[in-house]
Structure formats: structure tokens, C-alpha cells
Design a protein around this nucleic acid. Structure first.
Lengths: 235, 235
DNA sequence: TAACAATATTGAGATAAATCATTTTTTCTA
DNA sequence: TAGAAAAAATGATTTATCTCAATATTGTTA
């Protein structure tokens, strides 16, 4: 469970498809190199917790981070699974508030940590960076609104199907058609907003309907259009 | 239903408690005065529609605007009731996307319209303005995440109670303790994410429990702590 | 690898909430 | 202000989903 520190010059978060860093000047990139620190984190690690102040934000180079809120009686509501290229924690820095979610590593990860002050500096000195960040916030806002509408209007069955489709889009399938993200039934339930038992039953219904195949936690998608239809997903 | 154009110099959106304009320079304010146009809008008017491009954003000086998404079978999911001091439509301008909600006037309103290009100009030239706007987006993001968790985890009964509490906070009560916002049962249902009949039944339960009194669309709150308890609202 | 803890599965039963249908009341507008 | 249309109210019924409980199967780590 110990996190292994690595070189503070991974470069990857800047060079990789990370739109928010696209408009930095040479000087700013150099400064960023100095400010950031890149670390490995083991599955199970808590990056930060809801309600706590955080002093920086993270870029994900590798791995998966689960962002969730803790609701009634400790039940998790998963807001997002963040992966390579995603930036997390910036909201709290920008609005100078406590974290509104908890971030937990669910797949061994390599993350760049960047101090909050430097984020603020960048926003205040580089207009294009500010614009990119703003667009990121706006995109998340749009997705949140869609999520609200789905949860409010779709059945659990539809939502589960929809989330399988989204997981397929976000995390892709391996060569065997198996979802590249491995979640417990409880985590699926906490994303859909339902009971674990309901997820189990519905998954086995989908299996019965030849939409998916199940092997332990592996979910193989064998009829994507069918799933999309169940989930009322139009793309 | 005709909207009556008024003086393009209402001043109010700038001087009123509108944080995003707090850091504009004299010059920028002067320019804003030229760019914006202030209009009255009658109840029922559609400001913009989900999926359409919008070319500017609005500041609300007076009145109430309902923002909603249209979900399954045309059912509305209300995202927000915007009131004096609120800014709407900026998300689409910033992210250069189609509107992700429909905006409908539900109480006669006075709105300032500001062209999108000018918003972009301000963001690119005034760092403090950009920062304020970013914080606004982040605040909305936080609220959206809270909303997601509530809808996913609370019962319809709890959510209805909670929304009454929020409406009380946002729109206040008149001298008689009656909610200052007048909504149909259907609109309440579309906010809560439930069926109209359920809202009707639950409201009359709340009435039976001496939490509220009902006179037509007027909702008088007579036991706020009780409502907060039902709604699991901690403040 | 054994042994424990965590997860997954299945069943039975309870229930909150949806749906449908009808009537009453309120609100709007011609 | 009358009359139509919209909204609200109420009842009866159905159902999707939750809850609780018991068992089986995995995954983890000492």
C-alpha cells in the first residue's frame, strides 16, 4: 500500500492528449516541470477526501481513480471514473473550497501532482489556459446535467445498460471484447444509483438476453446496439 | 406574449450583487453598456432551446427562468430555477456548444442579453473576470454533484421536502410565510424527478403532518425544521 | 496454500412509487 | 365573466426495486 515516488519529470501529462496544457509557453512548461511531482499510487489509496481542503490537483498518466460522494448511511455515489488524460481536484482549487468528492485509486496509477498556487498563477497569466480549463468545467457541467436527467427519468435497468455503454466508450474493450475496467457489483450499483442485488439480477438478465457475457468481474459486451437500445442511448 | 424592449442601459446587472462583473474596469463597464441590451420577457417565453446554438448569455435582473432538459417521452427535468443575479447561457458560449438546456420564463422577467463574443473578449482580457466565471462554473458543478447524489439515494418524499427547503432559501417567503415562487405540481415533480400524482400525495401528507399549508399553488411553510428533517437537509 | 474476509448470488417478501382512470377545482383567455 | 382548458385531487391497481437473510464463490494475504 506504500506509494512509490518516481521521477518528478514524467513529461507525459504535458505531452499526452491533455488539452488544458496545450497552450502553455516554453517557460510555463519549464516551470511546471519544477512544480509538479509524479508518483505511483497503489490500488486502495485515498488521494483526498470529501470535505477536506486540498492543496493541489492531479493529472492522471496511468490507472483509474474513482470519484465519489458519500451519501445517506455511508453509501457511495460515484460521480466519475477518471483515467489517463483526466484532471481531478481542480474544482476545489479554483473555487477555493473543500473537496466535494473523495478520490480513491481503484487501479494502480501514475499521477502528477501540481500545487494549487501554480494552477492559479497559470489561470491568471495565461488566458488560453484559463479558457481551456473553463471549457473543461463546462463540459463536466453538461455531463452532470445529463446524468441528473438520466437518474431522474430512466429505470435502473436502463441506467445500468447505459453505464455499460459509457464504460465501453471511456475504457474500451480488450481483444476479447471485455470491458477494460474492472468493477465490483457494488461499484456498478454505486454508479447507477441502485442496490447491489439489483445490479446482479439485471446483469444476469442481460446475460440471458445475450447482450453480455459474465466471467467473474469480467464483462464481455457481445451486443452493443442491444445494450444501447435498452439504455436509451442515442449516439 | 410580445416582449417589450426597454432601455438598453439598465445598469442593474452590473451594480447588483453580481460577482462576475465585480472586477471589470471602467472601460469594460462602458463597453458592456454598449454591448448589452435589456428586455422584458413575458411568462411563457422561450429564451433558448436545448440543442440550439445561442449567441449570447443572459443576466437576470428580475423574474424567474426555468432551465430544463427534455428527457424520455418529452418529460422535463428541471435543472435550475434562475433568479435575479443569476447568469444563464454562459456555458454554451464558453464551450462553444449547443445549449444543453431549454430556458423558459416562468415569471415575467427583465433580462440583460450580452453577446457571446464580448464574453470571450472579457475572459481573454480580464483575468479576474475569467476567475469569477470559473468559480461560478465550479459552484454549479458542485451543486450538480450534490443533486446527483440526492436523486440517486434519497426517496421521492425526502427529495420533495428538500426541494421545498431549497426553494425557501433561494426564493424566500413572503410576509405570510408563503413561498415566493409559484410552481405547478407538475413543475415540482419535474424538479424532484417523480410523477405529478406523487407530488400531490406527498404535499398533502406534509400538510397532514403540519409541515406546510396549501392554498392553490401557494405553499406556506409552517415547520421548516420538520421539513429539513424529512429531507435529510443538514445546514 | 490455508483460511479468512470480501464479494457475489439467489430467494422471498415488503413497499414506495408509477400508472391509469375519473372527478373536481383552478386558471386562463376570449 | 363565461366557458374552455389546464391543473389538481383522489382511488384502485400494478410493478420495479429494495430489503433482509442465507449461502456460495471468489479474492487476498499471512
Amino acid at each position: 500500500m506504500k506509494n512509490i515516488p518516481s521521477t518528478p519529470k514524467c513529461q507525459e501529462c504535458i505531452t499526452s492528449n491533455n488539452a488544458i496544457f496545450a497552450h502553455l509557453t516554453k517557460d510555463e512548461i519549464a516551470r511546471l516541470e519544477l512544480e509538479k511531482s509524479c508518483n505511483h499510487h497503489k490500488r486502495g489509496t485515498l488521494l483526498y477526501q470529501e470535505g477536506n481542503r486540498i492543496n493541489g490537483f492531479y493529472c492522471i498518466n496511468k490507472g483509474i481513480v474513482k470519484l465519489y460522494k458519500t451519501g445517506i448511511e455511508g453509501k457511495e455515489q460515484i460521480i466519475k471514473f477518471a483515467k489517463k488524460g483526466d484532471v481531478i481536484g481542480y474544482r476545489s482549487i479554483l473555487s477555493n473550497e473543500m473537496a466535494c468528492t473523495t478520490a480513491k485509486i481503484i487501479e494502480d496509477s501514475t499521477l502528477c501532482y501540481i500545487p494549487g498556487e501554480f494552477l492559479i498563477t497559470l489561470v491568471k497569466t495565461n488566458t488560453n489556459f484559463a479558457m481551456e480549463l473553463m471549457q473543461l468545467a463546462c463540459k463536466e457541467l453538461k455531463e452532470a446535467n445529463n446524468f441528473i436527467t438520466d437518474i431522474a427519468q430512466k429505470s435502473v435497468r436502463e441506467r445500468l445498460a447505459e453505464i455499460l455503454v459509457y464504460l465501453k466508450e471511456d475504457f474500451d474493450l480488450d481483444n476479447d471484447g471485455v470491458l477494460q475496467i474492472s468493477l465490483t457489483r457494488e461499484e456498478l450499483a454505486n454508479m447507477v444509483g441502485t442496490a447491489t442485488e439489483s445490479v446482479i439480477r439485471l446483469l444476469s438478465e442481460f446475460k440471458g438476453d445475450k447482450l453480455i457475457e459474465l466471467t467473474g468481474r469480467k464483462i464481455k459486451i457481445i451486443n452493443l446496439p442491444g445494450l444501447m437500445k435498452v439504455g436509451n442511448v442515442y449516439n
